[in-house]
């Protein structure tokens, strides 16, 4: 479904991503982990269409992916994912309104009635039926993310992108959210990409884990080489020693001037 062919991403002379070659099938649940600034969010933005690769191609169904957001790809951000001026119900109904052609994005008559029914149904599934008249600022962080997910699902995306969606939540609530996402992924047969900085989260959610890391370092020019996918692992077949190995490898990146960690320069 998604194919990346030798993708590089540069900002001026700073290389963020290099040599990304992957292919993802419909229905996979991919988690992207890595240290901060390693390009995992940049890759997600490419999937979303708000960034494009400097070189290489990113294909969706063998067609170059559209370079602006559209209804094929739903998104849940860590913050600001819902509309603050709409109630919970209106937020979800807006998803239905936006999916129809029209000038204003408001619904009337039968269409409005249908949207309401669909919205109430999906709010039931994410466990927000008791809060439909509240505004987002009256919700807790977890409820707001549930709302954002409900909204994204009603847009009927083929691919659901999650950009550290649970990063700001308490651990207990996070576990509930994991369950919710897994349930919805199975029910709606979505293809999910989730960025997280929590390696543990990546290890038991989903079917596939990507670790983004830099394999080449130049101490004189830290921006000369970008990160690439260093591990592409199917979940469920990994033993603890590999987990620890990755866990350790993610950290030393943050410490500069570590000569033993350097690989010899390639060119």
């Amino acid at each position: 479904m998604i194919t990346a062919k030798n993708i590089w991403k540069r900002y001026d002379d700073q290389v963020v991503l290099e040599r990304i070659n992957i292919s993802v099938n419909e229905g996979e649940f991919v988690t992207l982990v890595g240290a901060s600034g390693c390009g995992k969010s940049t890759f997600l933005k490419m999937l979303l269409g708000i960034e494009s690769p400097s070189t290489g191609t990113l294909l969706l169904d063998n067609q170059p992916i559209r370079t602006e957001p559209d209804s094929d790809r739903g998104i849940v951000f860590q913050h600001y994912s819902v509309f603050p001026h709409m109630t919970v119900l209106e937020n979800v109904m807006a998803a239905r309104a936006f999916s129809r052609k029209g000038l204003t994005g408001y619904l009337f008559g039968q269409a409005k009635h249908d949207a309401r029914t669909a919205a109430l149904d999906i709010l039931e599934q994410v466990g927000l039926s008791h809060a439909i008249t509240r505004y987002p600022h009256e919700l807790s962080g977890g409820m707001r993310q549930r709302l954002a997910i409900a909204q994204a699902l009603l847009g009927k995306p083929r691919i659901l992108l999650l950009d550290e969606p649970f990063g700001a939540l308490d651990p207990g609530i996070r576990a509930d959210m994991h369950q919710l996402v897994l349930d919805l992924w199975r029910t709606y047969k979505l293809t999910v990409f989730m960025v997280t900085h929590d390696l543990k989260e990546g290890f038991y959610l989903g079917t596939r884990l990507w670790v983004f890391d830099k394999v080449r370092h130049d101490p004189q020019a830290p921006g000369a080489y970008g990160a690439t996918i260093t591990y592409d692992l199917p979940i469920g077949k990994i033993d603890t020693s590999l987990y620890e190995q990755i866990d350790n490898q993610l950290r030393p990146v943050m410490i500069p001037d570590e000569p033993l960690m350097e690989e010899p320069s390639h060119d």
């Binding site: 001026h85 807006a94 998803a95 309104a97 204003t104 994005g105 954002a148 994204a152 009603l154 847009g155």
Partner: peptide, 24 residues
């Protein structure tokens, strides 16, 4: 993020202007 979100739900330019930006 709000503009991107609206677009991923299928909104066109005028819908984003009228339903997302104008009320706010």
């Amino acid at each position: 993020e709000q503009l991107i979100k609206a677009q991923t739900l299928g909104a066109n330019t005028s819908q984003v202007l009228i339903r997302v930006l104008l009320p706010q």
